[in-house]
Computed example of a mutant assay.
Amino acid sequence: MSELKHIISLRIENSIRNAVQATASRFYVRESDIYRFAINYMLKRFKCLHEDDFSGSDLLPLMLDIREELIGSLSLKKHQLFNILNGNNVHPDKFVAMSDIELLLTPQHLVKQRLQKIDDSPQSDVDTETWLKQYLLEKYQSPSLQDSSDTQTQSSN
């Protein structure tokens, strides 16, 4: 049995459409196939947002991975991200502080300055994103953040 399909309208910049068309051409598929692929890919990555068990610090690895998109594409505000992370009756052990939510939404060039003010163990030998992940890992002691940090360390070696 096939699901009912809907036609949607979407506004995108010319540069994005050109990139989609070039990708479709390279894959020998229709432009609409690339849009469907992109939506399905994104929904799979965000699957944890549909599970009530995932809340608070459980969602930090995802938010760290999409940090630039949160700032640029989605233009999320701190209260919106607070509700995404802490809105589902989060367990007190998983609660993410507003100051750390603000840190997630802070532009790259300002994160280092903020971390220097709040982190007791300054890290001058690592890049800012790694320092941010380490800071949040230490503060929230999240195993999934540890896995993410280990994977990044291994891939950079």
Rank of each mutant, 00 (worst) to 15 (best):
54 F>W: 10
156 S>R: 11
145 L>F: 01
102 E>H: 04
85 L>D: 03
40 N>C: 09
67 R>P: 03
137 L>Y: 09
62 L>Q: 03
62 L>H: 03
102 E>Y: 02
86 N>Y: 04
54 F>Q: 00
69 E>Y: 10
121 S>F: 12
43 L>Q: 12
10 L>Q: 03
110 L>T: 06
38 A>N: 05
86 N>R: 08
116 Q>E: 15
141 Q>V: 00
150 D>W: 05
139 K>E: 02
82 F>G: 02
140 Y>G: 01
37 F>Q: 04
143 P>L: 02
8 I>Q: 02
44 K>Q: 14
68 E>A: 14
156 S>N: 12
22 A>G: 01
128 T>D: 07
85 L>W: 03
153 T>Y: 09
71 I>C: 04
99 S>V: 09
130 T>L: 12
14 N>P: 04
111 V>N: 03
121 S>R: 07
155 S>A: 14
140 Y>M: 01
132 L>T: 02
48 C>S: 15
87 G>M: 10
65 D>T: 14
15 S>M: 08
49 L>K: 07
49 L>Y: 06
120 D>Y: 04
7 I>H: 06
47 K>S: 14
37 F>W: 08
84 I>Y: 04
58 D>I: 06
86 N>Q: 09
70 L>Q: 06
102 E>F: 06
29 V>D: 07
118 I>E: 04
35 Y>S: 08
74 L>T: 05
7 I>P: 00
9 S>N: 13
134 Q>M: 11
6 H>K: 12
49 L>Q: 08
73 S>I: 12
79 H>P: 00
57 S>V: 10
40 N>T: 12
123 Q>D: 11
33 D>Q: 10
126 V>R: 07
156 S>I: 14
131 W>V: 00
39 I>N: 04
144 S>L: 09
148 S>G: 01
6 H>S: 08
43 L>N: 12
98 M>F: 11
55 S>I: 04
84 I>G: 03
27 F>P: 00
144 S>C: 02
153 T>H: 11
18 N>R: 09
91 H>R: 14
22 A>E: 07
100 D>Y: 08
22 A>Y: 01
5 K>W: 03
98 M>G: 06
66 I>G: 00
67 R>G: 05
150 D>V: 08
137 L>F: 13
157 N>W: 04
126 V>T: 12
133 K>N: 05
38 A>T: 15
62 L>K: 03
98 M>E: 15
139 K>D: 00
139 K>I: 00
134 Q>G: 07
156 S>T: 13
72 G>E: 14
56 G>E: 04
148 S>M: 15
141 Q>H: 07
19 A>G: 12
27 F>G: 01
80 Q>P: 01
105 L>K: 01
26 R>D: 10
25 S>V: 05
118 I>P: 00
32 S>N: 15
5 K>E: 11
53 D>S: 15
55 S>D: 11
130 T>D: 11
14 N>C: 02
19 A>S: 15
98 M>H: 05
39 I>V: 12
26 R>V: 08
34 I>D: 03
10 L>V: 15
143 P>F: 02
79 H>Q: 11
117 K>T: 13
57 S>R: 05
78 K>P: 07
54 F>R: 02
17 R>E: 13
117 K>L: 14
89 N>S: 13
133 K>W: 03
154 Q>P: 00
104 L>I: 10
17 R>I: 06
58 D>W: 01
63 M>T: 06
135 Y>M: 03
63 M>N: 03
157 N>C: 01
69 E>H: 07
66 I>D: 00
152 Q>L: 15
30 R>G: 10
2 S>P: 12
